[in-house]
């Protein structure tokens, strides 16, 4: 043992040295470097996960966007169809109204015509009666009781249906 140089104090001192070195390295090397390595790998993992997440989000957003566009297209078509329909309806309504109005106008015009004709007929009858009385007076040369004659003629006219108010 002496030849090799083993002695207890040196041995103990070297064990202590080693323990001290372990302590120092633990404090200045292992702990901070391991923390840093872990931190870095954590960050890398995190950012990779984030990338994945963002990718998924983008995909989802794109899908959503496509869906929206499709929806919007469909809706636009619908609105156009609706408008066409409404237009047709409105047209029909307008046409119907115009027709009605025209008919009403026509009816009124007809009524007017009839009224005027009646008036004319009345007038004619009046004149005819007067003329008749006059003519009869002339023919018989005597003045008839004017009132009695009128009544007579009116009765005759009433009986004849051809000149009745229509």
């Amino acid at each position: 043992m002496e030849g090799l140089g083993i002695n207890l104090p040196s041995l103990l001192a070297q064990i202590v040295n080693f323990a001290i070195l372990l302590g120092i390295l633990y404090l200045v090397a292992y702990k901070p470097i391991m923390r840093m390595l872990d931190e870095r790998s954590r960050r890398i993992k995190e950012s990779m996960e984030q990338t994945e997440e963002i990718k998924q989000q983008v995909e989802k957003a794109e899908e959503e966007f496509k869906k929206r566009i499709e929806q919007a297209g469909r809706k636009g078509q619908e609105i156009i169809d609706q408008a066409v329909l409404t237009g047709e309806e409105v047209g029909q309504k307008v046409r119907a109204e115009a027709k009605k109005e025209a008919e009403a106008l026509l009816a009124r015009a007809r009524a007017e015509i009839r009224r005027e004709r009646d008036e004319v007929i009345d007038e004619l009858r009046q004149e005819f009666a007067d003329l008749t009385i006059l003519a009869a007076g002339k023919v018989i040369e005597q003045s008839l009781d004017k009132e009695a004659h009128r009544q007579l003629i009116d009765r005759v006219l009433e009986e004849s249906t051809e000149l009745k108010k229509g």
Binding site: I6, S10, Q14, I15, A19
Partner: peptide, 12 residues
């Protein structure tokens, strides 16, 4: 090269 050191490490 001092045998005490390898021995100390081995014992540890």
């Amino acid at each position: 090269t001092d045998i005490n050191l390898p021995l100390a490490l081995a014992l540890t």
